[in-house]
């Protein structure tokens, strides 16, 4: 059932596969970035070997995110010191193919907790979540040049835009773009784990083209649970459903939300929690939807990989659980 694909160096902290699952990037506590490729690329399940290995930072890299393929082979690293960098594999000025630093993102007052790229019709956008509860949206100015970014918007993860939360401290954040490709409006869901209740709950933000601003269109939390710290969010691929499906993990479990497609009078989207799945009994590390948006995979502090599905009656349940054993 399982097949080893590659082994990592000591100190490796995180890994990420590219869009086609044919390249793997890993990063370590000493700031080294390693790219793995398969010697036989046509077959996806052969073993992978390191093809690039370079020091990207002096500090630990805690997360890697691939940039959408329309912008080349490029990864963003989030570091333990709260900075973030963008690296690109490129041939430049008659030099051989190599990974080059394109951009360094840092803020003096706060740290980057998570970032994600969204590929909209108007270009590439990057959402970064900061430790002070702020969300920054950057836009790429030139689609062939990853060095040039512009800050498009900056706001806090609160529904009521009048109240600004000061002096909050967030320990983690999770962002997930609406994976839809094409002309549709940009939207994403973001949630925090912080000491400020109103920042925490998962909120769906949509770009309002007419007024050129980001608006919160839904809050994915029951009234009594709005202050819950959120571990992870994951927006499911929608290949034709009349509603969106988003998973939100808190200490209560993994909540599956249905989100309506058309807004009401106030510009809000209808939402309904259709399931609350318990299993990990604690922190959920990661969640990811499969390509059809039907099965959710999650990993958590219980050391398990769990798969979740809805049955024919729309009842969500654990479909399978996997435990790594040596």
């Amino acid at each position: 059932m399982e097949k080893a694909m590659a082994t990592f160096h000591k100190g490796t902290l995180c890994s990420a596969w590219n869009y086609s699952s044919t390249r793997l990037a890993t990063a370590s506590s000493d700031g080294t970035l390693v790219i793995f490729d398969s010697p036989h690329p046509s077959s996806s399940s052969t073993s992978f070997t390191p093809t690039s290995n370079f020091k990207a930072h002096e500090v630990a890299i805690t997360k890697i995110v691939w940039v959408p393929p329309e912008y080349g082979d490029s990864v963003a690293c989030i570091c333990s010191d709260g900075t973030s960098s963008l690296w690109e594999e490129v041939v430049e000025d008659a030099q051989p193919l190599q990974w080059k630093l394109c951009k360094l993102f840092k803020s003096n007052s706060s740290q980057i907790l998570d970032l994600q790229f969204g590929n909209s019709s108007s270009g590439l956008k990057m959402i970064a979540a900061f430790s002070d509860g702020y969300i920054k949206v950057y836009e790429l100015m030139d689609p062939l040049n990853l060095k040039n970014w512009q800050l498009q918007a900056e706001f806090q993860n609160v529904i009521d835009s009048i109240s600004t939360v000061r002096k909050s401290s967030c320990s983690s954040a999770s962002i997930s773009w609406n994976p839809h490709r094409g002309e549709q409006q940009s939207s994403f869901v973001i949630a925090f784990s912080s000491n400020t209740p109103q920042l925490n709950s998962a909120k769906v933000w949509e770009f309002d083209q007419a007024h050129h601003r980001w608006l919160p269109v839904a809050e994915l939390a029951l009234t009594a649970e709005k202050g819950d710290e959120v571990y992870a969010v994951a927006w499911a691929q929608n290949i034709g459903r009349p509603y969106e499906v988003i998973a939100v993990a808190t200490q209560r479990g993994i909540a599956i939300w249905h989100l309506g497609l058309s807004p009401d009078m106030d510009g809000r989207l209808s939402r309904e929690r259709v399931a609350l799945l318990s299993g990990h009994n604690g922190e959920v590390w990661e969640m990811e939807w499969d390509m059809g948006g039907m099965t959710l995979a999650s990993t958590g502090k219980d050391g398990m990989v769990r798969l979740w599905q809805s049955n024919l009656n729309g009842v969500w349940h654990q479909h399978a659980a996997f435990e790594p054993t040596s």
Binding site: M1, E2, A4, T7, L13, C14, S15, A16, W17, S21, S44, W285, E286, E288, W289, D290, M291, A297, S298, T299, G303, M304, V305, A320, A321, F322, E323, P324, T325, S326
Partner: peptide, 20 residues
Amino acid sequence: VYPIRHELKPPIARLSISWA
């Protein structure tokens, strides 16, 4: 619960999952 057999020495610090 299905086992995923690996060749690593415990303890395990973290798991990361990605659909192919």
